[in-house]
């Protein structure tokens, strides 16, 4: 699975993009805990295959997980 971190989340995670092996039963929280164990998820949202996703819902067959910090478009 590809894992992406954007803006402030990228700075907190220490990576912009990773390719890692995952299981369908993994949740976004479990994946982030594995690859960035000291990273706080407070005020961050998860997105799975371009849709906002609960941190504790399994990812299934998804191909991409993104870590979304508070947005500020416009």
């Amino acid at each position: 699975m590809k894992v992406l971190a954007f803006a402030a989340a990228r700075e907190r995670a220490g990576f912009a993009e990773l390719e890692i092996p995952v299981n369908p039963s993994d949740t976004p929280r479990a994946i982030l805990t594995r690859i960035a164990p000291h990273m706080s998820l407070a005020d961050l949202r998860a997105a799975v295959d371009y849709e906002y996703w609960d941190w504790d819902t399994p990812i299934g067959a998804a191909a991409e997980l993104a870590v979304i910090p508070p947005v500020s478009g416009g």
Binding site: F6, A7, A8, A47, Y52, A66, I68, P69, V71, S72, G73, G74
Partner: peptide, 14 residues
């Protein structure tokens, strides 16, 4: 549209 853009669209500025 602008209000919701500012809460949900994954866009960031610095």
């Amino acid at each position: 549209l602008i209000d919701q853009l500012k809460t949900d669209a994954p866009i960031w500025k610095r």
